[in-house]
Amino acid sequence: MKKQKVVLLGKGRVGKTSIFKRFLQNEFHDNEVTTIQPQYLEKQVKVNTEKVTLSIWDTAGQERFRGLNPLFYRNSKAAIMVYDITDQESLDSLEDWLAELKNQVGHKIVLMIVGNKSDLKKKRQVSIEDAENLAKKVGAQHFCVSAKTGENIDEMFHELAKRVMKFVKENKTPLNTTKSRRNFALVNEDVETKKKKKKNNDGCC
């Protein structure tokens, strides 16, 4: 299998990089001391004797760079949308993130909604039902994860790999259909242009 691009999305200070590191390096730092690596890494995941390499991109979450994030989304096959359990706004903002993503990539993408900091159950503000409702709405899968303890993180990525595999296999065969669609689109365009021309001609005459 080829490399599959996965993007991490979410509001600032949600814990995207900590999830990223827990999965790739199995590390976590409360006060983040000298863990310097480029925020891009690859990892192979085994799914029923088949291997998938996930190239995971950590994106910028701060507002000043948010407008420029669409550059990161290109060619991505999956997106992990992270929210903080202790912050209601982070879940609300996910819809905006989704809209941005779909503008760039379209509807063909594997989505995961992940609630981070599940170890802080006492400070929880976001209910699981709300999150799951949103996931259903979007067509995504919901996971509750803690980067600190490493809870559910491997499972979540394993599930993501499975879904990506499926998604790729489904999209391999209908190559002809895309062509036909393109042709169809072209035909439609021609018809439209002809109509327009006719209209213009009528106007002139």
């Binding site: 600032g12 990089t17 590191k21 983040e32 001391v33 000298t34 863990t35 310097i36 690596q37 480029p38 925020q39 950590d58 994106t59 910028a60 979450g61 701060q62 760079f65 990161f72």
Partner: peptide
């Protein structure tokens, strides 16, 4: 340096 990890925020 004692910095939080090199994010895209930092890189940019």
């Amino acid at each position: 340096l004692k910095i939080s990890s090199l994010n895209t925020d930092a890189y940019i």
